[in-house]
Design a protein around this nucleic acid. Structure first.
Length: 799
RNA sequence: GCGGGUAUGGCGGAAUUGGCAGACGCGCAAGAUUUAGGAUCUUGUGUUAAUUCGUGCAGGUUCGACCCCUGUUACCCGCACCA
């Protein structure tokens, strides 16, 4: 029988909301469960099936937990500041505020249509004053603690978006938003000192239940390396050139040094360098290259020797040439390296091209052919000769350098400080005033929120300055410290700011005195389970852990870490197996599916299509299969009978057990498969008891809640199925009285025997010999070995 | 280049982690119902002449391997001249 899902689904969504059954209670004796999903960016195009998949996992888990008696917090909100809305505003002339409100309304109604069990009383919108007031508050706290600094630096700049991007936003040399090539530009930039938290973020990872690949990505992103700083002398002057190396023990093999094109020592010693023209020309050439060109053209090494000055090896006292080359980056280490061509591939290539000596200091390779990066005995290395263990030789050299005062051990991180400003309108204004007398002055806390001025012009200036710079009433202000004329900072925060703490605001979304009440934070934190996309594992997840840890350090939150557990869903690919995109025209709109099949079918299909963590292509036909499943479930009430066959009972207990554990492991596909299998068994049996139907509805409810509520009511229940008690199983009833064992002869399955459960070896062998067919196969053979795994298999080895 | 992952019927995917490969769904075929189509229901469906062969490919360990080991190929995802 088909049921009229459009009427049914709307009816139950309204009842849930009227009864407020999904609203979390702040004061409850029940155990708590805080399930979190990444809140969406409310774009104009509306929701994507990927959103549904991302939310469905925690949705099902949260619904199950609620039925198990937990006080569940499952909130939703909108990460609404950002470029796409601003771009759209510039195009259409509609204010970003107006567009954001429209988009949020659209998303909200779409989310409601799918029947997610969100607590709609706690919706957070990062662009509301009540919210960004606290984003600004956290920024000021960081400023106060010295974690905010300003620096002139070469930054990643997108010429199309006219905006400065963090390294995280410009991966691969492409703008994260518009995909055009990034150029390097010198700018004044606000930074957050995230590197100061690198170790803390790294250390706590051990105590967190994140998927292993997620942890690994974070570790790689932070990129901690141990090594040493070494100060090389510079010939003829009382100065040194500092380098970072992970292999200080190869110091005897250093035959040249390389500095990055932007390295300040070049300007410092401009009068000593005799070929300054060539050096400057090279530098000019490098600055024209995009980051992309510079990192992709790996093979061909270029560079210029600095004539007139030499480096002095602090261990050997030998003079060596210094080169400027773009394979050395200013942004990592000290921007200068000691080159050991015998044992570093890049240095090797460079030495070969420029005809520089190559000295072997580690035995084991053939340095006439290529660099040897492996381990081996140290040679040509003075006091290190004969060392065979890398750890020992490095420790010895660091000891030596420290003693001589020419270096020391140290660590480096690949992660860089977080470039924290954008020349944009639609973002949180940075609460800073520039005073000609006092310098950089923070806006006082009591003046927060520092509101975005209402304007009608959102396009950035040609010079790449923020649209806010054009608004005199905003820019001109009094200095909070001296009261004199001053100017406001006109840049805004990056998109990642608001999403770095939103999970805290859900706990107490309307608090006007603090970002959230401490007692409530203590009750709800940490987030028990956070699910989201793999694409946010290195950026958002690192940023928000950083902010949270900072708030912990200043006593604003009670836990070191925000998220106890983190998982990630796989992509939904288009029907063609390719990533969904407008340009490919393979995008599936969830609304179309809800229109035709209903929300329950959409939900069940998305979780049934494959392993939750893996990518899987969309298939319209498989959606129909889920539709059939639910239609058959809708027929179950007509099959209720007192004379249901007894054998169904153990199938029910098995299914309860399987669905219960599969949901916890996010194996939703096999949980649904188990229910389909049970339904097939019920179909064969032709009847089921009223209690069995009840159990079935409860198991299916987290996946297809509308249908289950409807049938729950139809079968005479009062109250909500969604609030009823999750079924329990009896372990004893999940096992059958008899089991079938496969019988192998020489490892090949030749037949089957049926035995009482837990029968021993003798019984199994006896049963095999009593089986006519199997006995015939053993006739005249010598039995070498008999292996019996109880309840599983018998294997008889014969000759 | 480095790191991680994946590879199973025509398709999406299962497999209690070393014990009957292919659960469940799609598709397909036959039948029922229908004026017909659609929808629905029933049965069948890895492959083979076979008691055969079969989890990307080549070996190995084991009574027994999709699972463990060695080598290899293809694809996917991260990072990428990180000193």
């Amino acid at each position: 029988m088909k049921y009229d899902f459009s009427a049914v689904e709307g009816k139950w969504q309204k009842r849930w909301e009227d009864a407020g059954i999904f609203n979390a209670a702040d004061n409850s004796d029940k155990p708590k469960f805080y399930g979190l999903v990444e809140f969406p960016y409310p774009s104009g195009v509306g929701m994507h099936v990927g959103h549904i998949k991302a939310y469905s996992g925690i949705e099902v888990i949260g619904r199950k937990r609620r039925m198990e008696g937990y006080n569940v917090l499952f909130p939703i909100g909108f990460d609404a500041f950002g470029l796409p809305t601003e771009t759209s505003a510039i195009k259409t002339g509609i204010h970003p505020r107006e567009l954001t409100d429209r988009n949020i309304n659209k998303f909200s109604s779409q989310l409601r249509r799918v029947g997610f069990a969100f607590d709609w009383n706690r919706v957070v919108d990062t662009t509301e004053e009540d919210y960004y007031k606290w984003t600004q508050y956290i920024f000021l706290k960081m400023f106060e603690k010295g974690l905010v600094f300003r620096n002139t630096a070469l930054v990643n700049y997108c010429p199309t978006c006219k905006v400065v991007l963090s390294n995280e936003d410009s991966q691969g040399g492409k703008c994260d938003i518009c995909k055009s090539d990034i150029v390097q530009k010198s700018k004044d930039v606000w930074y957050l000192r995230i590197t100061e938290y690198a170790d803390k973020l790294l250390e706590e990872l051990d105590n967190l239940d994140y998927l292993p690949n997620i942890k690994l990505q974070q570790v790689n992103w932070i990129g901690k390396s141990r090594g040493a700083f070494v100060n090389f002398g510079i010939s003829g002057v009382e100065d040194s050139l500092r380098v970072y190396t992970t292999r200080p023990d190869t110091l005897f093999g250093v035959t040249f040094m390389v500095v990055a094109p932007e390295h300040p020592m070049i300007d410092k010693y401009a009068d000593k360098i005799t070929n300054m023209d060539a050096v400057l020309a090279y530098r000019e050439e490098c600055s024209k290259k995009t980051e992309f060109e510079r990192t992709q053209l790996v093979k061909d090494k270029t560079g210029v020797c600095l004539e007139g000055i030499k480096g002095v090896n602090p261990v050997t006292g030998k003079e060596i040439p210094i080169y400027i080359a773009d394979y050395v980056m200013m942004g990592y280490g000290t921007g200068a390296i000691m080159a050991v061509p015998a044992h570093d591939e890049r240095d090797y290539d460079f030495a070969k091209k420029f005809g520089i000596d190559i000295i072997e200091v580690i035995k084991g390779g053939d340095i006439s052919k290529e660099a040897y990066a492996g381990d081996g005995e140290m040679v040509n290395s003075g006091f290190l000769d004969g060392f065979t263990n890398k750890k020992d030789s490095i420790a010895k050299m660091i000891e030596y350098l420290t003693e001589k005062g020419v270096g020391e051990g140290g660590v480096q991180y690949k992660m860089k400080d977080w470039a924290f400003n954008r020349q944009r309108y639609w973002g949180e204004p940075i609460p800073i005033v520039h005073c000609p007398e006092c310098g950089i002055v923070p806006v006082p806390y009591e003046e927060l929120p520092l509101r975005l001025p209402a304007v009608n012009e959102f396009a950035p200036g040609e010079g790449g300055e923020s649209p806010l710079a054009k608004i005199d009433s905003f820019v001109n202000c009094k200095c909070p410290r001296c009261g004199g004329d001053a100017k406001r900072e006109t840049d805004t925060m990056p998109q990642w700011a608001g999403s770095s703490w939103y999970f805290l605001r859900y706990i107490d979304p309307h608090n006007s005195k603090s970002l959230a009440d401490m007692d409530k934070l203590k009750y709800w934190l940490p987030v028990d389970w956070y699910n989201g996309g793999m694409e946010h594992v290195t950026r958002h997840l690192i940023y928000s852990r950083f902010w949270h840890r900072f708030l912990y350090d200043i006593g604003e939150v009670p836990t070191k870490e925000p998220y106890a557990k983190r998982t990630a869903q796989g992509l939904i690919l288009g029907p063609d197996g390719e990533k969904m995109s407008k340009s490919r025209g393979n995008v599936v709109d969830p609304n179309d599916v809800v229109d035709v099949y209903g929300a329950d079918v959409l939900r069940v299909y998305i979780l049934f299509m494959g392993d939750y963590g893996s990518a899987a292509p969309w298939s319209d036909n498989s959606v129909k299969g889920c539709k059939r499943f639910l239609d058959r479930v809708a027929d179950l009430p007509s099959m209720v009978s007192k004379d249901a066959p007894a054998k169904l009972e153990s199938s029910f207990h098995k299914t309860i057990k399987k669905v219960t554990s599969d949901i916890e492991e996010m194996k939703f596909n096999t949980a649904i498969a188990a229910m389909m299998g049970l339904l097939n068994e019920i179909g064969e049996a032709g009847a089921l008891t009223a209690e069995q139907l009840e159990t079935f509805l409860l198991l299916l409810c987290p996946f297809a809640p509308h249908l289950c509520e409807e049938l729950w009511e139809q079968t005479g229940h009062s109250g909500f199925c969604s609030m009823a008690k999750w079924p329990e199983y009896d372990e004893a009833k999940t096992v059958d009285a008899t089991v079938e064992l496969a019988v192998q002869i020489n490892g090949k399955v030749k037949g089957k025997i049926t035995l009482p459960i837990n029968s021993d070896k003798d019984a199994a062998i006896a049963a095999v010999k009593a089986d006519e067919k199997l006995a015939a196969l053993l006739e005249g053979k010598t039995i070498v070995k008999e292996i019996v795994v109880p309840n599983k298999i018998v294997n008889i080895v014969v000759r």
